[in-house]
Amino acid sequence: MPKALGKINGRMQVEEMEVDENSLEKASKVEWDTPLSGMVYGTLLNYQGTLDQMGDTLHHPPYQSPPKAPILYIKPRNTFIGHQAAIPLPDDVEELETGACLGVVIGREAKWVEEERALDYVLGYTVVNDISVPHSSVFRPAVKDKSRDGFCPAGPWIMEKGAVTNPDDLTIQVFVNGEKKQENNTSNLVRSVSRLLAEVSGFMTLDQGDTLLVGIPENPPHVKAGDHIRIHIEQVGTLENVVRRESMSGRGSQ
């Protein structure tokens, strides 16, 4: 049976657990803390469909050409919340943009990693919802649109690397209020998981516990207060959260 690492609210340590197809039902009966511990780096424009949609825009100012290297941004610690925690909808915002991501959790220091050996540095994988306020900035996403409190739900757990057959061929589905709103596959990444790890570690060190988000598929659904979001990544897990007005929810409330 596959093993995962998870953290239950009120407990100091991350715990190893066995998980199966019935684990999500069990997971709904406990309060989960985020499994994230280190830095979280997001990646822009790493799905081919997103580049295709931008079309000729990429060849005009300010871009001039498609990106030649990974475009990264940071999801700081204030954004971290767990499975079933409430996503705060700021009182000055009408809707949020979901961001279904495969999170690649680093198992040991990764620096100048060769693509062929990149997965040797992976601890496991988790489901992440890279929430943002809808915005038009692409190459330089505004901090206030990507980094508000509760804008990085993750979990419920980190699935062990060996339980995932091929991280470059995983179906990702997003359901809003029970209706499927998005489906894609990591086979459509511009940079595979291994290539992305190799290129990023070529200019900065990834430490144990850091998480690299491989990117958000094109056409992410928008959600409003009261909406229930369920993101499923095959072989990894299912992350669920409800959107609540910030004045009503408080950070990380259940």
Rank of each mutant, 00 (worst) to 15 (best):
M204L: 13
V30L: 13
G209F: 04
G250Y: 07
L206C: 02
V200H: 07
V214F: 01
V127E: 07
I172H: 00
E21H: 00
V190S: 02
S23N: 04
N185D: 14
V113I: 15
L119W: 11
Q48Y: 08
N9P: 03
S65E: 05
M17T: 07
L45P: 02
V133I: 15
V236P: 00
K68Q: 11
Q64H: 11
P221I: 06
V242E: 07
S253A: 12
D20L: 06
E95R: 14
M39W: 02
G124L: 10
V214T: 12
P134A: 03
M1P: 09
I231E: 00
G215R: 01
G55Q: 06
H135R: 14
Q13G: 12
G215W: 00
S132A: 08
D120A: 14
N78V: 05
Y41T: 11
Q13I: 13
I216L: 08
D92L: 10
P70G: 00
R244S: 12
T211G: 05
P221D: 07
E16N: 10
G99T: 08
G38W: 00
S192D: 06
R244L: 11
N219Y: 00
S147Y: 02
G202P: 08
D56T: 11
T126P: 05
Q48F: 03
Q13F: 12
I233T: 02
I158H: 06
K29Q: 06
P167I: 03
E16L: 13
K26V: 05
A118F: 12
A198H: 08
Q254V: 10
S65Y: 05
S65C: 06
V138Q: 06
N177I: 09
P141W: 09
V176M: 06
A154R: 08
L189C: 02
G10S: 13
L72P: 05
E240R: 00
G252I: 06
S253I: 04
D168Q: 01
R195S: 15
I216F: 05
G103V: 08
L196I: 09
K144S: 13
V133P: 03
A27Y: 01
L213R: 04
D227N: 09
W32A: 00
E97I: 11
L212A: 03
S28Y: 04
A4R: 03
T126S: 13
L51V: 04
T98I: 15
R77N: 10
G82N: 02
F139L: 14
I74G: 03
L89K: 06
F175Q: 07
V223K: 04
D207I: 03
R117M: 15
Q182S: 14
L44T: 12
L102E: 10
V122E: 02
A4W: 02
L170R: 00
G103W: 10
E18A: 13
E109I: 12
N184I: 06
G6Q: 13
S37A: 06
V122L: 09
A69H: 11
I131N: 05
T126K: 13
V30M: 09
T34E: 02
D149P: 12
P67I: 03
R251Q: 14
Y125N: 10
N219F: 13
E234K: 14
A69I: 01
E160D: 15
F203P: 04
E94F: 15
G215Q: 00
E179M: 03
